[in-house]
Simulated assay, not measured.
Amino acid sequence: MEYRLFDEGKQFPVQYFYDRIGKPEIAMRMTCDYFVKAGQIFEKTSVAIDGGTYVIYVQPAVEEHVVDPKQKADGKTIRIELRQFQEDAAYYPVIHKYEFRDEMEALLHMQSNFLYLYGKEWEKTSAEIDEDRNVYVWYAKATELGG
């Protein structure tokens, strides 16, 4: 699997390459709108399969900033943070931390458009993988139905 910079003029250079990564993790990464690595945030532009290589095309995210860089998961499970998205906010509070041992269960959560938690319905606004913290983040707003 590769992350390539979406820059046709530079012939889409490879930014990051992952040799030993399973298909469930590739699928989870493909669901993410953002990718965080080495303090830099990239926005996904598209995904492709190029001669058997899974490719995620990214570009630097201009108006995004890293969230909680010191809160790192231990890596023993797959962590997905549900964070409350708010327009123009500098911080997105953690509503819940999901911990999964099953990659497919984590993938199904990442693919969902809605989650129901604490008597509320949460609608996904975006998702990211933050490699610096070893977590996936599911940003959402409480819907009218969910209060």
Score class of each variant (00 low, 15 high):
Leu115Tyr: 05
Gly119Val: 14
Val14Leu: 03
Glu2Cys: 01
Phe85Tyr: 15
Arg20Thr: 01
Asp68Arg: 12
Thr45Pro: 07
Gln11Phe: 13
Gln15Lys: 14
Gly146Trp: 09
Asp50Gln: 12
Lys76Asn: 04
Tyr116Gly: 03
Tyr16Asn: 01
Val66Arg: 05
Arg133Asn: 02
Phe12His: 08
Glu81Pro: 05
Ile80Asp: 02
Thr77Ile: 09
Lys120Asp: 04
Val14Phe: 08
Arg101His: 09
Ser46Thr: 10
Tyr91Met: 00
Pro24Leu: 14
Leu145Thr: 07
Met104Thr: 15
Gly119Pro: 08
Val137Ala: 07
Lys70Asn: 07
Asp7Glu: 10
Asp19Asn: 10
Lys76Asp: 03
Lys23Val: 05
Asp74Arg: 15
Glu99Ile: 15
Thr53Gly: 06
Tyr91Lys: 00
Gly39Asp: 00
Val94Tyr: 13
Val67Ser: 03
Asp132Trp: 03
Arg4Phe: 04
Asp50Met: 12
Ile129Met: 06
Tyr34Phe: 13
Lys72Thr: 06
Ala27Lys: 15
Asp7Tyr: 00
Trp122Asn: 02
Lys44Cys: 03
Ala142Ser: 13
Arg133Cys: 04
Lys70Glu: 10
Ala106Cys: 12
Leu145Pro: 04
Pro93Thr: 07
Ala127Trp: 07
Tyr118Asp: 13
Lys97Ala: 03
Gly51Cys: 13
Met110Asp: 04
Lys44Arg: 15
Ser126Val: 09
Gly9Ile: 02
Gln40Gly: 08
Lys23Thr: 07
Gln11Val: 07
Val66Pro: 04
Glu103Pro: 07
Gly22Glu: 02
Val135Thr: 14
Gly147Ser: 12
Glu8His: 08
Thr31Trp: 10
Tyr91Ala: 00
Glu103Ile: 07
Phe35His: 01
Asp88Glu: 15
Thr45Arg: 13
Ile78Asn: 03
Ile41Asp: 00
Tyr54Met: 12
Phe100Thr: 03
Asp19Leu: 14
Thr31Ala: 14
Trp138Pro: 09
Tyr57His: 06
Thr45Tyr: 11
Ser46Val: 02
Phe6Ala: 10
Glu43Phe: 06
Val58Glu: 01
Met1Phe: 12
Val67Phe: 05
Glu25Phe: 15
Ala38Arg: 01
Tyr3Leu: 02
Gln86Asp: 13
Gln40Cys: 09
Gly52Arg: 10
His96Ser: 08
Gln84Ser: 04
Phe35Cys: 00
Gln84Ala: 14
Leu107Ile: 11
Tyr139Met: 13
Gln15His: 02
Ile56Gly: 02
Asn113Thr: 14
Val55Trp: 14
Asp132Tyr: 05
Gly147Leu: 12
Glu99Gln: 15
Val47Ile: 14
Ala61Ser: 13
Gly52Ser: 03
Thr31Met: 10
Leu115Ala: 04
Gln15Gly: 05
Leu5Trp: 08
Ala38Val: 02
Phe114Leu: 09
Ala106Pro: 14
Ile49Arg: 07
Ile41Trp: 09
Tyr92Ser: 06
Trp122Arg: 07
